[in-house]
Design a protein around this nucleic acid. Sequence first.
DNA 1: CTTGAAAAGAACTGCCT
DNA 2: AGGCAGTTCTTTTCAAG
Lengths: 151, 151
Amino acid sequence: MIDLDDTDRAILRAMAQDATQSAGALGRRIGLSQPATWRRIKRLEDAGVIAGRRVVMDREALGFGVTVFLGIKLATKGRVSLEDFERAATAIPEVQIVQHVLGLFDYRLRVVARDIADFERVLRRRIMTLPGVGQVEANVLLTEERRPGPI
Amino acid sequence: MIDLDDTDRAILRAMAQDATQSAGALGRRIGLSQPATWRRIKRLEDAGVIAGRRVVMDREALGFGVTVFLGIKLATKGRVSLEDFERAATAIPEVQIVQHVLGLFDYRLRVVARDIADFERVLRRRIMTLPGVGQVEANVLLTEERRPGPI
DNA sequence: CTTGAAAAGAACTGCCT
DNA sequence: AGGCAGTTCTTTTCAAG
């Protein structure tokens, strides 16, 4: 774990809004020169604080209008069945995120589909046939708001 | 909605893995020249398929080792209370994502905290005092795997 | 679509305060 | 730590096949 000063935090906050910005543009916003800003970004990357950059794709524009969150409780859970379940779940193309969690459920999946009919197909053919699935609970996404979070 | 050919899909898949790659590098991977690749990326951006680029921050490296998903059922839900809830929830620094969903719960929140003690503070002081909260269910994140999803 | 090239900008380096 | 100046590389745009 690295310790950051306020300047590092300002850089991270600015990057959280738009990761397209150049070191020079970021520096101008926080009152720092281009090389100084660049060196700080590099340091944050080397320290692993900045783990990478990801494209944000609009699933609606791609024709996937339905996003569903599934809470899954396994019927059988040894070490092997957890690995089997994860391997099978990550192999489903419609599954975007597989989260191993502690609580009422064992796994949480983020699933996208073209429409509700398409989702039902995925649910019946792909999800319900996963190794070890027990109880399944679903929540359909209406709107989503992302925030930078604490830095 | 735009229709994509296999080349567009190949570009999106490559970018989903690593958004740092230049148009030239992407082109080499899929057998296309730098200008041709660049034009396609530009087209995908203009069409809104590529909605932006986001930095991936390692919350562990930042000292936030605990991520919890909360399912929240509202006690009172008129149009006003939904807006009140959303406004208040997005104002909490520890809340990364606010999802309005349909199903057993009304909202799902992704919350990060330094440790379990810190999470309890957020839960008691911030979450339980949100306007209209009824039932709250929690799942602690153990591991998370992201996949490109269908393109 | 391609190749080639030019102009602009961003990334990176070394040196100095 | 920060700034300045310079070099190198990539991006971006163009022309021509």
